[in-house]
């Protein structure tokens, strides 16, 4: 049996005190500690693996809005069509959150500004919906989608004759997106490779921005 003498660093009766531990005990301690550490790491990895269950569905909610307006029913982005999504903003007005009412009224009164606004909004939904599904810049996508969801909630969240529908959509998607802003995404994500290559995020000047 090999005996190790460990310097505990404290004085004992005027002389250095040594703790005597057998290698067996030491091995057990190290093993046990790494076991605890690896268990914690493993549970984090495991939790990460369940995130795509929600992430892809959440992203699809926004990306599919873009598909509906461009591929399924292009008339939705035609200002001269009855299907034009600009009309949706009009239906928001009666019970939208007060600070937004004036902006909605202004937008629907200015067709020349309403149209580029809708294009921009649709593009944002397409880009960040796709990013969320791919797990690319998940933290940034989470923030943008949370703002989109809650913005729609404050404007048209009062709509929904069946099950207070729009509020449920806005609240759940907003909370889910905000969660992804904090968790980021690794497994089944582009971010996994980005994080390996650039662990401290995007570096602009001297600031590291954790986009993934």
């Amino acid at each position: 049996m090999i005996v190790l003498l460990l310097n505990t660093g404290c004085s004992f009766f005027g002389s250095k005190a040594y703790q005597v531990i057998s290698i067996d005990v030491l091995t057990y301690m190290v093993k046990n500690e790494s076991l605890i550490v690896s268990k914690v790491e493993q549970s984090t990895v495991n939790v990460q693996k369940y995130l795509p269950i929600l992430r892809v569905t959440l992203g699809w909610m926004y990306f599919s809005a873009f598909l509906r307006r461009t591929i399924n029913v292009p008339a939705k982005l035609n200002p001269h069509s009855p299907a034009y999504v600009g009309g949706k903003l009009l239906t928001f007005i009666p019970h939208a959150w007060q600070p937004i009412v004036g902006q909605l009224e202004w937008l629907v009164s200015h067709p020349g500004i309403l149209y580029p606004f809708l294009l921009l909004f649709t593009a944002a939904e397409a880009i960040f919906g796709l990013f969320m599904m791919l797990g690319f810049m998940t933290r940034l996508s989470g923030l943008v989608i949370a703002l989109l969801a809650w913005g729609i909630g404050a404007a048209g969240g009062w709509l929904g004759p069946t099950c207070v529908d729009e509020w449920q959509i806005a609240a759940v998607e907003g909370a889910a997106a905000l969660m992804f802003m904090f968790t980021g995404s690794r497994w089944l994500s582009v971010d996994e490779y980005l994080a390996k290559k650039y662990p401290s995020g995007l570096r602009i000047l001297n600031i590291n921005i954790p986009l993934w």
Binding site: G153, G157, W158, V164, W167, A175, L178, M181
Partner: peptide, 17 residues
């Protein structure tokens, strides 16, 4: 994050409905 998300949900529920 918990306070913000829960707060927005409850605020939307009260103000919209």
């Amino acid at each position: 994050g918990f306070i913000i998300a829960t707060g927005v949900t409850m605020a939307l529920y009260q103000i919209n409905f």
